[in-house]
Design a protein around this nucleic acid. Structure first.
Length: 405
DNA sequence: ACAGCCCTTTAAGACTTAGG
DNA sequence: CCTAAGTCTTAAAGGGCTGT
């Protein structure tokens, strides 16, 4: 894979070019090697020779006998691959499942498409993980080999309504209506198992606690650090012991130390962070709208002019000379507005574009997104103070959002 | 003890769009 | 036509448990 920048480097060679000829001269010349005395001559020719050596590589091919069953063939496939080229564990699990259950892939894909139409386009591996969690009470794929056809089919019959419950709960009770707002899709597996274990009979109080858990787990990224599978297994095990939303919340508190958000947690985070997604949820719940069209903010607006963008309140161009790009991309500098509004603002500093907006619509559009409007904070020299001030307001808003509802 | 594992996060560059 | 703001794509890093 080459990028334009890489191609410019004198020592960058195209593998196909090296294979096309047997001569090293053009490559050495391009790299600036002037003659045999050049210390790089030896080094570079050896490298090229090693590259051409790939041609002589002996590939091993195993031809399996016809009498082997489909099951045995996949078993061999899995073992060979576990040491060779990287295949995702979900791919291997899928191979093992389809070996036992012909046509399973079609069934899985049909459900995957159905979820996609409901606004949740999810990886097939996630649906498999959900299946395995229903079949075994844990989330790792290692166990798939030992499952019988019947066990798999029963689990599938049960995990489909489970996933449907999870999606509906997220959309309608929690307000998370797109996987883009999820910090990890594993959250769905936990919710699916929860619904199933409760036989889909959940009291108002319990559902409220579960909503709280889902929001905080998502905001803090319960499954977004290392060992996500270990944590998912812990949560699934909680259900086996008869636990519910309160136990989930206890585990979350144990992991994070505290359940509310602090201003420090927002520092230096960028738009990929889990908290940024929660910021969007909180602002939307507070009625945030685009500054020109007054369209309520949403992820799925159609048309380039209404399509949501992440607006830099202090434009990157305005900060370029005094701050790093990391500092400019801080989530405390980002707001949610439509594409057209954002492009019109372009690189205008806030001190310039705030006043006309304030005159036209008052401060409501800004307070909905926790944006300070004191003119003294709107200058580049006080950017850091602006960030700190907005962080405080965002923290307050997000905590209200997490607790309320 | 330590390499391995696996998903998420980060970083960097290419590409796209629209305003001036 | 240039510029600036996004978005998209891909590789590498991060992080904490697992298995040998």
């Amino acid at each position: 894979m080459s990028t334009r920048k890489l191609e410019q480097l004198p020592r960058w060679v195209k593998v196909t070019e090296v294979f096309k000829s047997d001569s090293d001269a053009p490559f050495l010349k391009q790299a600036g090697v002037t003659g045999f005395e050049d210390p790089r001559y030896e080094k570079y020719s050896q490298r090229l020779a090693r590259l051409r050596g790939i041609r002589k590589y002996v590939y091993r091919m195993d031809v399996l006998e016809r009498r082997l069953s489909y099951d045995e063939v996949t078993e061999i496939f899995v073992r060979v691959n576990s040491l060779g080229a990287k295949l995702r564990s979900s791919d291997l699990a899928l191979a093992q499942i389809t070996a036992k259950w012909r046509g399973a892939l079609k069934t899985f894909q049909a459900f995957q498409t159905q979820c996609g139409k409901a606004g949740f386009d999810l990886d097939l591996g996630l649906h498999l993980k959900n299946l395995v969690s229903f079949a075994t009470g844990q989330s790792r794929f290692l166990t798939v080999g030992g499952l019988s056809l019947e066990a798999l089919q029963v689990a599938w019959r049960e995990c489909v309504p489970g996933m449907e419950f999870a999606l509906n709960f997220l959309k309608s009770n929690v307000g998370i209506d797109s996987p883009a707002l999820l910090s990890s899709p594993f959250l769905l597996v936990t919710l699916a198992n929860y619904g199933h274990r409760r036989n889909y009979q959940i009291s108002a109080e319990e559902s409220h606690r579960l909503r709280y858990w889902a929001l905080v787990a998502n905001a803090k990224g319960r499954y977004s650090r290392g060992s996500s599978e270990t944590l998912l297994d812990q949560d699934l095990a909680t259900f086996g012991d008869g636990g519910g939303a309160n136990e989930l919340i206890d585990r979350l508190r144990l992991q994070m130390g505290r359940l509310d958000i602090t201003a420090e947690e927002l520092e230096g985070r960028n738009q990929r962070s889990a908290l940024f997604k929660t910021m969007f949820l909180a602002f939307r719940a507070a009625g945030a709208k685009d500054w020109r069209s007054n369209l309520a903010i949403a992820l799925d607006h159609s048309g380039a002019s209404h399509r949501l963008q992440f607006h830099h309140i202090f434009p990157k161009a305005a900060l370029k000379n005094s701050y790093t790009s990391r500092e400019a991309d801080d989530i405390a500098n980002l707001a949610f507005i439509g594409g057209k509004t954002n492009r019109q603002i372009s690189d205008k500093p806030p001190a310039q574009y705030f006043p006309p907006l304030l005159e036209k619509s008052g401060s409501a559009p800004f307070t909905a997104q926790c944006i300070p409007i004191e003119p003294t904070l709107l200058v580049v020299e006080r950017y850091k103070d602006f960030l700190a001030e907005r962080r405080k307001a965002v923290t307050c808003r997000v905590n209200e959002f997490l607790d309320g509802g």
